[in-house]
Amino acid sequence: METITLKPGQEHRITLPGLGSAGYRWMAEPYDQNVVMVEEILHSRKATVPIAGSLQQVFRLTAVAPGHTSVSFNQRRRFEPEKEPHASYAISVAVTA
């Protein structure tokens, strides 16, 4: 698992391969929001869209306060919650003063 160290207020971006044309989305699983905040940076209409392809998903991690947590992302179809994720990614985040 990748590990990053941030200071409060510092940001880190994660880019994950998209699979929206197949119905899949990367979603962050519950994590410690006292340590870090995770937010997806959405593509606007002006993005160059491949005809039947998917755009990457970009997430911004913002350090909140000192501590340690890990953030897990699962790529799944929200309408198939009972199925195993198509792909998974996790990152360990250490926030130091």
């Binding site: 998209g18 929206g20 044309s21 119905g23 989305r25 997806e40 959405l42 593509h43 606007s44 209409r45 993005a47 869209v49 491949p50 005809i51 039947a52 392809g53 998917s54 755009l55 998903q57 179809r77 929200r78 309408f79």
Partner: peptide, 24 residues
Amino acid sequence: NDFFWYSSGVYTANPSTGVAGGHC
């Protein structure tokens, strides 16, 4: 991104939810 949540009725796109890609 709101297209993934469609379940019934007439789909009306909400561009503010962001673009996920193209689809056929």
